Amino acid sequence: MEQLQQFFQDKTVSTVLDVGTGSGNFISVLKEALNNTKFTGIDPDNASLEEAAKIHPDVHFSIMSGEQLDFPDSTFDAASISMAMHHLPDVQQTFNEMKRVVKPGGWIIVNELFSDNLNPAQEVHKSMHHFRSTVDRLNGVCHNDTFTRAEILEQVKKAGLEICTAFNQEKDRVEPSTEDISERKDQLIKILSQIKDRPEYHELKKQIPEIEKALQQYGFQMATRLVVIATVKKD
């Protein structure tokens, strides 16, 4: 990510904590932007961490929630959270913990998809994402609908962080093949099967052919992501 490289090119970042790391995708991005940096990744899902450890054998991973970080104050030069804000039960508590473990004057990096001002192909992605988040919530999993761009910035400012820069990041639109569309439809059917005994099943089932039709008509493109780099204020 070129903007990250430009921002950190003259800055020393020796240690980074990646919160909600999942399979470690954002660590791969950060490795391209930062040099000689030691990474730590945390996530409450052990299966995701096992996958991340295969990709990043040089990174230390721990099972941990963002709301309660088991690290001393001022441990890291920076902390990041990517594509995970909408999974948090308490966004502000997580930001407070990230602030606590980052050294004063250090940085917090947020990478989060947003839900407004999207083109039709991105709206397809949003509808698929919200379909899954609805099923997760019915299963008792914290998976909220995505924030708007303004709401993400508001959450960062509310945490008392000073925004240094913020920019949008987009991936290219994909024209899915018939096979791709069939696979995505099968994924939705598999997700829906988790709640086959619930009354909401039949209403959600109606969305699948609508999403399939939109895929055929508009293609698929990841929703735009907002990247925010903020600094932890010095006392």
Rank of each mutant, 00 (worst) to 15 (best):
Gln3Cys: 03
Leu4Trp: 01
Phe8His: 04
Lys11Leu: 12
Val13Trp: 00
Ser14Trp: 00
Val16Glu: 00
Leu17Gln: 02
Thr21Leu: 03
Gly24Val: 06
Asn25His: 03
Ser28Leu: 04
Glu32Asn: 09
Leu34Asp: 02
Asn35Glu: 14
Phe39His: 00
Phe39Gln: 00
Phe39Tyr: 08
Gly41Val: 15
Glu51Trp: 02
Ala52Asp: 01
Lys54Thr: 10
Val59Gln: 00
Phe61Ser: 06
Ile63Val: 15
Glu67Leu: 05
Gln68Asp: 06
Leu69Thr: 08
Asp70Gln: 07
Asp73Phe: 12
Ser74Asn: 10
Phe76Thr: 13
Asp77Trp: 01
Ala78Asn: 04
Ala79Leu: 08
Ser80His: 03
Ser82Met: 01
His86Phe: 07
Leu88Glu: 06
Leu88Thr: 12
Asp90Met: 05
Asp90Ile: 12
Val91Asp: 04
Gln92Phe: 09
Gln93Ile: 15
Thr94Ala: 13
Asn96Pro: 03
Asn96Glu: 04
Glu97Trp: 07
Glu97Cys: 10
Met98Ser: 06
Lys99Tyr: 08
Lys99Arg: 05
Lys99Ser: 08
Arg100Leu: 06
Val101Gln: 06
Val102Lys: 01
Lys103Arg: 14
Pro104Ile: 07
Gly105Ser: 11
Ile108Glu: 04
Ile109Ala: 02
Ile109Arg: 00
Asn111Ile: 08
Glu112Gly: 04
Phe114Pro: 02
Phe114Asp: 02
Ser115Thr: 10
Ser115Ile: 13
Asp116Gln: 12
Leu118His: 08
Ala121Trp: 10
Glu123Ser: 07
Val124Arg: 01
Lys126Val: 15
Lys126Ile: 13
Met128Phe: 12
His129Met: 10
His130Ala: 11
Val135Arg: 02
Arg137Pro: 05
Asn139Tyr: 07
Val141Cys: 04
Asp145Gly: 08
Asp145Arg: 11
Thr146Asp: 00
Thr146Gln: 02
Phe147Ala: 05
Arg149Phe: 01
Glu151Lys: 15
Glu151Trp: 09
Ile152Met: 10
Ile152Asn: 03
Leu153Ser: 11
Leu153Cys: 11
Leu153Pro: 03
Lys157Arg: 13
Lys157Cys: 09
Lys158Phe: 05
Gly160Ile: 15
Glu162Asp: 15
Glu162Phe: 14
Ile163Cys: 09
Thr165Met: 07
Thr165Cys: 09
Asn168Val: 15
Glu170Ser: 14
Glu170Tyr: 05
Lys171Cys: 08
Lys171Asn: 09
Arg173Asn: 06
Arg173Tyr: 03
Ser182Met: 07
Ser182Asn: 12
Glu183Ala: 14
Glu183Asn: 11
Lys185Glu: 05
Asp186Lys: 11
Leu188Lys: 04
Leu188Ile: 13
Ile191Ser: 07
Leu192His: 03
Leu192Met: 07
Gln194Val: 15
Pro199Ser: 15
Tyr201Pro: 05
Glu210Asn: 08
Ile211Asp: 00
Ile211Cys: 06
Gly219Glu: 01
Phe220Tyr: 11
Met222Val: 07
Thr224Arg: 10
Leu226Asp: 01
Ala230Phe: 12
Ala230Glu: 04
Ala230Trp: 05
Thr231Glu: 10
Thr231Arg: 12
Lys233Met: 14
Lys233Asn: 14
Asp235His: 14
